[in-house]
């Protein structure tokens, strides 16, 4: 089953898909127009950096040098705070004086149960479902300090439109396709992740309790898909959905 969150009459409401792109509202009525979508979750969004081989392979030599000295031993995590959360179809303002901006096509793993100190074998029991995420970032030139300036800008974490039930997806076999202005621009696959979804849930839940509605972004690939004002960027995962957003310049948003 799929569900999404929209704004109707200034209230957050749930919708499910009908045939031919139509939507069914939570009160049983079909929705006539395309709605304003919200992110499908409202919890904490945790991202995992340095979990994609395309990136790890490139940095292998750097890891042995200052300031890193050695490769990371545990998952490298970050938070996408609430000001970054956005829905399908939202317009995202990009800074024009802060260097290049990159898309980050990714899976979103949505937690369904309070999860503390789970084993890898128990981990998937805590998953409610999956969604599509675009983890937008400025260039990742260093991994030494938390990337707040690069990753925590307003609207830099669109998610959705759909939250798909856990049973519909195998998180060990997910293909993520990113499109720039309608053209397929990048494909990445869960087999290229260093740690799998169950391994990550187990590792995170060892030291912090995950709550229903929290979301984990297991990996983003090497930043190659630059996005600019005027572009339309889409991330698609077969079986989950297609997340599309339009980009404008920050100055024109103010």
């Amino acid at each position: 089953m799929k569900q999404g969150r929209i704004v109707l009459d200034q209230q957050a409401r749930r919708v499910t898909p009908l045939a031919a792109g139509k939507l069914l509202l939570d009160n049983g009525n079909p929705l006539a127009d395309q709605p304003q979508w919200l992110a499908p979750v409202t919890g904490t969004v945790y991202g995992v950096a340095l979990n994609h081989r395309s990136l790890l392979d490139k940095l292998e030599a750097d890891f042995q040098q200052p300031p890193y000295q050695k490769a990371p031993a545990t998952p490298v995590l970050f938070i996408k705070p609430r000001n970054t959360h956005a829905g399908h179809g939202s317009t995202i303002a990009l800074p024009t004086q802060a260097g290049k901006v990159f898309a980050g096509g990714a899976l979103g793993v949505v937690i369904g149960k309070t999860a503390s100190k789970l084993t890898e074998q128990q981990a998937l029991d805590a998953v409610a479902g999956y969604t599509v995420v675009n983890e937008i970032s400025l260039e990742e030139s260093s991994f030494y300090r938390p990337a707040v300036k690069a990753k925590c800008r307003d609207g830099f974490c669109p998610m959705g439109p759909w939250l798909v039930d856990a049973a519909a997806i195998d998180p060990l076999n997910v293909e993520i396709r990113s499109y720039l202005n309608g053209e397929l621009a990048e494909t990445n696959h869960s087999r290229d992740w260093l740690r799998s979804v169950p391994q990550l849930i187990a590792a995170l839940s060892q030291f912090m309790t995950l709550q229903p509605g929290d979301l984990i972004i297991p990996a983003t690939p090497l930043r190659q898909l630059e996005i600019r004002p005027g572009d339309t960027v889409a991330v698609e995962i077969p079986g989950i959905g297609r997340l599309e957003n339009h980009l404008i310049a920050e100055e024109s948003a103010q």
Partner: peptide, 17 residues
């Protein structure tokens, strides 16, 4: 003990229950 040189200080150091 849990400090590493990636996004330092990372969540395992600073965001524990």
């Amino acid at each position: 003990d849990y400090l590493e040189n990636y996004y330092r200080p990372n969540l395992r150091v600073k965001n524990r229950d």
